[in-house]
Amino acid sequence: MSRLVLLLLLSASACAPGLIDGPVADTARAIAKEVDEARLYADVVSLAGLHASDTRVDCAALNSTADTWCNLSNATARRFVEERFRSLGLSPEFDTADTHPATSNVLVELRGTSKPDEVILLGAHFDAFFMGADDNSSGVAVMLEVARLLATRPLARTVRFVGFDFEEIGLIGSTRHVKARSRPKVSLVLDCVGYSDSAKGSQGSLPGFPTPSAGDFLAAIANDVSRPRVEEVLQVVKGQQTPAVLAIIAPGLGAGPLSGNLMRSDHAPFWLAGESAVFFTDTANFRNPNYHTRSDVPDTLSQAFLAGVARATAMSVVAWGDAP
């Protein structure tokens, strides 16, 4: 028995994470320091304002006239993402399809210098209920900030930025993307990344999830396939100016009955396809009382937390993009 245990321990250590080496980590950290907190928050305010004035999705067509579903919008936020990509000198693509309602993801690629066929994907959904400051203007703003940082600084691998459409209806845009596009080497999905509360008891949880009491950490969620990527995230953000990162690894593909809450965003279609994907979140309704309500407005977010998430995101993307 002791030999079996020893063998297992040795095999566990033999499966140690792929390490991000010094120069790559140094580059990632240097780029992350250029995150502009004021610009980031201004983007959240702009996106939330656009959602507030946008034409609503026809909720009757969704077979629901509930207040939440009748306050879902996507069009002007998508236009904002498109225009931002263009302002960075990039040429966005759309993949419109009539999925009842029609969906149209918006995406750009920054071609890699030495491994262009290997793709790192950074995505966030741009549809939102009400103003959707946390869910998910925060994620879109972080994605755009990282695109700004990398637009003139290509990495070894291609970086694909994707604004996913209609996550709220059922991950429609991301599911279509996974089916239609070449598979990325790793994907990082951002959803609800701006709300923080350091008061004890502010963090909700579920049985079996030993989360901290204070809701001021960033959850980095992976499954067994993407476990090494989360280990690299922990490695590259260590000691940096980011929120504390709580890594959560779901077993297998993550689709088990007791871990279903870990699959509630656009990373799920990647997981189900067997792909490597990591999900950054403030844990949404387990922390933010404004989740999917009219009170999900920019004033409720923490600019410092949001900027910290942007730094963690930038470091992760650069580390994966430039890793040997």
Partner: peptide, 24 residues
């Protein structure tokens, strides 16, 4: 004594990454 091998929800603790060791 017990040895648990396989699926689990794993969490990082502080700076320590989620464990890859079996459950003892």
């Amino acid at each position: 004594v017990v040895l648990g091998l396989g699926g689990a929800l794993d969490f990082s603790v502080g700076d320590r990454p989620p464990s890859r060791a079996p459950t003892l």
